[in-house]
C-alpha cells in the first residue's frame, strides 16, 4: 500500500512526531511504500537541524533525516507554515534576505499542493496530531 503521512505537531511537546516515525518504520518494514511525509502547523519544527536534545533522549529531527535517506522518503515542510515559524532553506534564506538557514538534511520546503497531491496519489493519507 502507498501511504501519505501528515504531521501536525511539533517534536517533543507532542507525541505525534514519534508516533508518526514509528508508523513509517512499521509500514516500510512490512513492505509498504511511504510516498511522502508532509509537515504542517508546528510540525514544521520536525525539520530544524539546530535541535540538540540530551544524548539519552531521541533526536527526532535526526531520526526523520536518517529515515528519509535509508528508505528514500520525501520529507516536505509547508512553506507557509515554515515562514511563520522561522524554518528556512537556501531558497527561503535568499528570498526573504535571512542571515542563515536551519533546515535539516533530507527535508525540503514546498507548498500545500504537495499535501493535496499526497492525498490524490496515495491509497491512504494518515494524519498525526490532535
Amino acid at each position: 500500500m502507498k501511504f501519505g503521512i501528515q504531521v501536525n505537531e511539533g517534536p517533543y511537546t507532542h507525541e505525534a512526531s514519534v508516533t508518526a516515525i514509528n508508523f513509517v518504520k512499521s509500514a516500510v518494514a512490512k513492505g509498504h511504500e511511504v510516498f511522502r511525509v508532509f509537515f504542517y502547523h508546528d510540525g514544521v519544527n520536525n525539520g530544524t537541524r539546530y535541535a540538540t536534545p540530551p544524548q539519552d533522549d531521541i533526536n527526532i529531527q535526526q531520526t526523520w533525516s536518517n529515515l528519509a535517506k535509508e528508505h528514500n522518503i520525501d520529507l516536505v515542510i509547508c512553506v507557509a507554515a515554515a515562514q511563520r515559524r522561522g524554518l528556512a532553506d537556501d531558497g527561503e534564506q535568499e528570498r526573504n534576505k535571512l542571515d542563515g538557514n536551519n533546515i535539516m538534511d533530507g527535508f525540503r520546503i514546498s507548498g500545500l499542493g504537495q499535501l493535496i497531491e499526497a492525498g490524490i496519489e496515495c491509497d491512504r493519507l494518515v494524519v498525526f496530531g490532535d
Binding site: 504542517y40 507557509a80 500545500l112 499542493g113 493535496i116 490524490i120
Partner: peptide, 12 residues
Amino acid sequence: ESLEVVLIGAAF
C-alpha cells in the same frame, strides 16, 4: 491553517 489548505486544494 486548515482553511489555507482548503483554498490551495481547491485548485486540484
